[in-house]
Design a protein around this nucleic acid. Structure first.
Length: 878
RNA sequence: GGGCGUGUAGCUCAGCGGAAGAGCACUCGGUUUACACCCGAGCGGUCGCAGGUUCGAACCCUGCCGCGCCCA
C-alpha cells in the first residue's frame, strides 16, 4: 500500500480568480482533448442539440449569450451523465442580409450588383463571407460553448445545398410546391418578395382620405389610406346587406382622374362600419382587394413598378409612391372630390424586417409551399406529445400559428442563396431537377432566376446537418434531436418550419423531442434591447469585465420560464461576486486540508453540522436534477447560489473552522466533508460556470477534467432530521446573540465572556462550543459578572445567555428590541387565537393544520410572558 | 378587433390555498488571517382595484383598471 494518507502536492491557487487570463487556454484544452467531439460509434445514448444557425453576418448579442448558456448547460450536464452528446454548430447564409451587406460595399465603390453580373457577384459574396462572416463563431468560444467544431455546417455548403435541392424536388413531385401569381409582400428597397413573417407591423401616422366617385345620386364615397392606388382601382365594393348602397349594386361608377368606369360589387368582406361602408378595390395592390377581385372576376391593374414608382401614363407617371400620394390627393381636391381628410390617421403598416422599408403589396408570380398538410402534421406532433414545448403555455401560440398558416412564399428575387432548381423550356415546359439529374440544355432552356427563402434551407437544419438525404451514421445516431432551444420570438421562424420539414422528410419522426423557448433580454427598466434605443449590452464586454462564467450565470439566473429577463451591469457584478465567493471558499477549504482522497467517514462518526450540510447537499442534487429536467434555469441557479453562499459559506465553513481546530479525527473527518461537498457543488455548477469550476475542481481532486467527470447522484442516505433541527437551533441562537450584540453597540471583534444556560434541555449541548465561537463568546473567568442576559425561544424551550459586557447595558436599545419582539409575538397570538376561536376552522381545517396553529399559539404565549417579565425587570432608562 | 401574458419591498423578480421571500439598492457597525467582489445587524410590502368561493385567498372565480407581446 502506498502512502495515500499524505496529502498530495497541490498546485497553489492564485489569491484571486482572473478569468481573462485562463479562459482561452482552458477552452482550447477542452477542444484539443476532443471532449466536445461526438463519437458516432459510441454505445452511449445520444443527446443532440443543433444550434439554431446564427446569421453569417451577425455577431453575438445578449439573446445569443442566453441561448448558448442554456444549450451549453444542457449538453454539459448530459455529457457528465454519460450521454453521447452532439452539439452541432453552423450558420445560415442569410440571403437578404448578406446580399445587402455586399451591395453596400459595392455601392461605396460606385458599383451595383448588375455591374458585376450574377456569377461575379456571388463570387464576391463568398469572398465577403470568408473575410467578414462568422465572427459569431469565435465569440461562441469566448462563452465556453462545448460544441463539436468538427461538424460545423453552413446552409450554402455542398451537402446542405444538396439537401435543399432534394427536398424541393420531392415536394415539387408531391405537389407541395407550386408556382402562382398572387399578392405578395414586396420590399421596394431589397427588390424581393418576403414571406408574411418577414414583415413587421407597426402603428404609423398616415392619412385617411374620403373620395367621392361618380356624380350626383349615383356617386359613392370611399375612404382610403393609400390614395395613389386609386389609379389601379377596378371596382368599388359594398356589403351586400348594406341598405344605403343596395340601389347601386350592379351599376358602374367612374374612377376620378382615370376616366375608367368600374362596377360596384357586393362582397361579404366589406365592413359596413368602416368609413362610409364603401371601399375602393385595387386587386393588384392589396391582398384583400385581390381576393375580392378573384371573387368578382375583376381585372388586376398594376400601377407601380418594383421600386414603387407609378407607371401609369399621365401626370403621376414616374412619381414615387409616397410622392404620388399627395399629388393624387391634390388633384382630387382640385376637382372637389375630397369629402373628408383625417391626419394623422394611425394605422398598421408593414415594414421589411431587414431594412425597415414600407412593404408594398404586389401582384407577382412566385413559388409557394402548400402548407396545409405539413402544418397539420407539425401541430399533431405537439398535440400527441412526440414533441414537448417548454413552457407549455407557448404551445397555444404554436397551435394558433400552424393551424392558421397561409401558404408560404419561398422565392426571393436575390442572387445569394439556393437557386430554384426549375428549368423552363422553349415550348413552355417546366422541369424540376433533382440533385443527381442533368438539367435540360439546348436552345431556349433557362433556369428560374430566383433563389429560395433562407428559411427554406435552415428549416432542414436538424437533419440536413447530419447528412440527409444520405442515410448516414450520424443521422441514424443523432436524429431526432433532443432539444431545440431558442427565444420565443423565433417560434414561428424556427420551430414550425423545422417541424414541418422534419416530419415530412423523416417519415413523420419529429425533429426534436423538446422545444425550450426562453424569454427576451431587456434592460434594467424592462425595455427591450435595441440599436435604436441604444440600450444594448455587448456580452463580450461582460466577459471581459466579469468573466464568461459570471456572464452565463447572470443570464441563466434570470431565465424564468415564459418570461423575459431584465439584465444590467449590477446583475453581472453580482454573479461575478458569486464566482469570487466560490473561489475564496475553495481556497480556504484547501488551505485547511479539504480532500477527496479519503472516503467520507461513516455517518455516526460525523457531527450534526456535517450531517446537516451533507443532507442539504443531497437535497440540492435532486432539486437541481429536477429543475434541469424542467428547464428551470433560474430556479436551479438560485438553488446553487443559495446553498453555496448562505448555507455552505455562511454556516458550514464557520462550523468547520471550529471542528478543524479540535484536531485529530474530528479535523480529518471535517476535511473529508469539506472536500466532498465542494466536489459535488463544483460538478453541479460546472454546466453553468465551466471555467472556474474546472480550475477549482482540478486543484481539489487532481482529476483530468470536470467536462468528462460524472454528474452527481443523490446518496440515498436517509436525512437526519435531528441534526437539521439542532443546526437550525444553533443558527437561531447565534443570530439572536449577534442581534443583541449589534443592538448593544458591541464591536463585532469584541470578545465577551458568557455562559449559555439550558442548552441541554433543548438538545443543543453539542452546539454550545460552536455557538460561542461564532459569537465571539469567551469562557467566563473568576471575575465573571453577568451584566446582561438574553433569552432565546426555541421549539423545545428557552435558552438563556448570560454575558459579561463589563459595563452598563443600553437599556433603551434593550427595551426597543424586546418591545419589537413582543409586538411580533402579540400579533402572532392574535392571529392564532382568531383562527382557533373560530369553530368553523377547528371543525373543517385538517388536524395537522389545527395542531400547528395551536403550537404557534403556545409559543407566542410563552414569548409574551417571558418578554413582559423581562421588560418589567429592565431598569428605568436614565 | 381577437388571443396570450402580466401587475408582490425603491428596482428586477420568485412564491400560486394554510406564518409575505430573494438579489440589487438603502441604513448602522466592522482592516474578525477564505473573501471589503467581504462580514454582522437592520429598514422596507392593506401582494393593481372591487366583488365572490372557502374555516382560511398574494394564490381559485368574476368584473374593472394599468402594462407587455402575438395575430388581424
Amino acid at each position: 500500500m502506498t502512502e495515500s494518507s499524505t496529502t498530495p502536492q497541490r498546485p497553489e491557487l492564485p489569491a484571486a480568480w482572473q478569468p481573462s487570463e485562463v479562459e482561452a487556454e482552458l477552452y482550447q484544452g477542452w477542444v484539443d482533448h476532443g471532449y466536445f467531439t461526438a463519437d458516432v460509434t459510441s454505445d452511449k445514448p445520444p443527446f443532440t442539440i443543433v444550434l439554431p444557425p446564427p446569421n453569417v453576418t451577425g455577431s453575438l448579442h445578449m439573446g445569443h449569450a442566453l441561448n448558448h448558456s442554456v444549450m451549453d448547460a444542457l449538453t454539459r450536464r448530459r455529457r457528465m451523465q454519460g450521454y453521447e452528446v452532439l452539439w452541432l454548430p453552423g450558420m445560415d447564409h442569410a440571403g437578404i442580409a448578406t446580399q445587402n451587406a455586399v451591395e453596400r460595399d459595392l455601392a461605396n465603390n460606385g458599383l451595383s450588383r448588375n455591374d458585376l453580373g450574377r456569377e461575379k457577384f456571388v463570387e464576391r459574396v463568398w469572398e465577403w463571407k470568408d473575410e467578414y462572416g462568422g465572427k459569431i463563431l469565435d465569440q461562441m468560444r469566448r462563452l465556453g460553448d462545448g460544441i463539436d467544431w468538427t461538424r460545423e455546417r453552413f446552409t450554402m455548403d455542398e451537402g446542405l445545398s444538396r439537401a435543399v435541392q432534394t427536398i424541393f424536388k420531392k415536394m415539387f413531385d408531391d405537389d407541395l410546391i407550386y408556382r402562382a401569381e398572387r399578392i405578395i409582400n414586396w420590399c421596394p428597397r431589397c427588390q424581393t418578395a418576403l414571406s408574411d413573417i418577414e414583415v413587421e407591423h407597426s402603428d404609423d401616422d398616415g392619412e385617411l382620405v374620403s373620395i367621392r366617385y361618380g356624380e350626383g345620386a349615383d356617386s359613392i364615397v370611399v375612404a382610403t389610406t393609400r390614395a395613389e392606388t386609386m389609379l389601379g382601382d377596378t371596382a368599388v365594393a359594398v356589403h351586400p346587406d348594406d341598405e344605403r348602397y343596395a340601389h347601386l349594386i350592379g351599376t358602374e361608377v367612374e374612377v376620378p382622374l382615370t376616366g375608367r368606369r368600374v362596377p360596384i360589387v357586393a362582397d361579404e368582406h366589406v365592413d359596413p362600419k368602416f368609413g362610409t361602408g364603401a371601399v375602393k378595390v385595387t386587386p393588384a395592390h392589396d391582398p384583400n382587394d385581390f381576393e375580392i377581385g378573384q371573387r368578382h372576376g375583376l381585372p388586376n391593374l398594376t400601377v407601380m413598378d418594383g421600386r414603387g414608382v407609378i407607371t401609369v401614363r399621365g401626370p403621376f407617371e414616374g412619381l414615387d409612391r409616397f410622392e404620388a400620394r399627395p399629388a393624387v390627393v391634390a388633384a382630387l381636391r382640385d376637382q372637389g372630390r375630397i369629402v373628408a381628410e383625417k391626419r394623422p390617421y394611425v394605422h398598421s403598416v408593414g415594414h421589411c424586417e431587414r431594412c425597415g422599408t414600407v412593404v408594398e403589396p404586389r401582384l407577382s408570380l412566385q413559388w409557394w409551399v402548400k402548407v396545409e398538410g405539413i402544418a397539420k402534421a407539425a401541430g399533431d406532433a405537439v398535440r400527441d406529445g412526440r414533441t414537448t414545448v417548454h413552457p407549455a403555455e407557448l404551445g397555444k401560440r404554436y397551435f394558433d400559428w400552424v393551424d392558421n398558416l397561409h401558404d408560404w412564399c419561398i422565392s426571393r428575387q436575390l442572387w445569394w442563396g439556393h437557386r430554384i432548381p426549375v428549368w423552363y423550356g422553349p415550348a413552355g415546359e417546366v422541369v424540376c431537377v433533382g440533385p443527381d439529374e442533368q438539367p435540360p440544355s439546348g436552345d431556349g432552356w433557362r433556369q428560374d432566376e430566383d433563389v429560395l427563402d433562407t428559411w427554406f434551407s435552415s428549416g432542414l437544419w436538424p437533419f440536413s446537418t447530419l447528412g440527409w438525404p444520405d442515410k448516414t451514421a450520424d443521422l441514424a445516431k443523432f436524429y431526432p434531436t433532443s432539444v431545440l432551444s431558442t427565444g420565443y420570438d423565433i417560434l414561428f421562424f424556427w420551430v414550425t418550419r423545422m417541424m414541418m420539414f422534419g416530419l415530412y422528410a423523416m417519415d413523420e419522426v419529429q425533429p426534436f423531442d423538446h422545444v425550450y423557448l426562453h424569454g427576451l433580454i431587456r434592460d434594467a427598466n424592462g425595455k427591450k434591447m435595441s440599436k435604436s434605443r441604444g440600450n444594448g449590452i455587448d456580452p463580450l464586454a461582460w466577459i471581459d469585465s466579469y468573466g464568461a462564467d459570471a456572464t452565463r450565470f447572470t443570464l441563466l439566473r434570470g431565465a424564468n420560464p415564459g418570461s423575459d429577463l431584465a439584465v444590467a451591469e449590477e446583475w453581472a457584478a453580482g454573479a461575478r461576486n458569486f464566482t469570487t465567493k466560490l473561489w475564496n471558499a475553495t481556497r480556504f477549504a484547501l488551505s485547511n486540508g479539504a480532500t477527496v482522497d479519503r472516503p467520507l467517514p461513516a455517518r455516526d462518526a460525523l457531527t450534526d453540522a456535517d450531517r446537516w450540510i451533507l443532507d442539504l447537499l443531497d437535497q440540492l442534487v435532486s432539486d437541481v436534477d429536477g429543475q434541469f429536467e424542467g428547464f428551470q434555469f433560474a430556479k436551479l441557479s438560485e438553488a446553487l447560489y443559495h446553498f453555496t453562499w448562505d448555507e455552505f459559506c455562511d454556516w458550514y465553513l464557520e462550523l468547520a473552522k471550529v471542528q478543524i481546530a479540535e484536531g485529530g479525527e474530528r479535523a480529518e473527518a471535517t476535511q473529508s466533508v469539506l472536500g466532498h461537498v465542494l466536489d459535488v457543488v463544483l460538478r453541479l455548477l460546472h454546466p453553468l460556470t465551466p471555467f472556474i469550476t474546472e480550475t477549482l475542481w482540478k486543484t481539489l481532486t487532481g482529476g483530468e477534467s470536470l467536462v468528462i467527470s460524472e454528474w452527481p447522484k443523490p446518496s440515498g442516505v436517509e436525512r437526519d432530521a435531528v441534526a437539521a433541527e439542532r443546526v437550525e437551533g444553533l443558527k437561531k441562537l447565534v443570530t439572536e446573540i449577534r442581534r443583541f450584540r449589534s443592538d448593544q453597540g458591541l464591536r463585532p471583534t469584541q470578545k465577551v465572556a458568557g455562559k449559555v444556560r439550558g442548552a441541554c434541555c433543548v438538545d443543543l449541548l453539542d452546539q454550545v462550543s460552536s455557538v460561542k465561537a461564532l459569537t465571539r463568546m469567551t469562557e467566563p473567568g473568576d471575575d465573571f459578572a453577568v451584566s446582561a442576559s438574553l433569552e432565546v425561544g426555541l421549539p423545545k424551550g428557552t435558552v438563556k445567555v448570560e454575558l459579561d459586557t463589563s459595563g452598563t447595558i443600553d437599556v433603551v436599545a434593550e427595551r426597543k428590541r424586546m418591545t419589537k419582539d413582543l409586538a411580533v409575538a402579540e400579533k402572532e397570538r392574535a392571529q392564532c387565537e382568531g383562527k382557533l376561536n373560530n369553530p368553523a376552522f377547528t371543525d373543517k381545517a385538517p388536524a395537522d393544520v389545527v395542531a400547528k396553529i395551536q403550537a404557534r399559539l403556545a409559543a407566542a404565549n410563552a414569548d409574551i410572558d417571558r418578554l413582559n417579565a423581562r421588560i418589567a425587570a429592565l431598569p428605568e432608562a436614565k
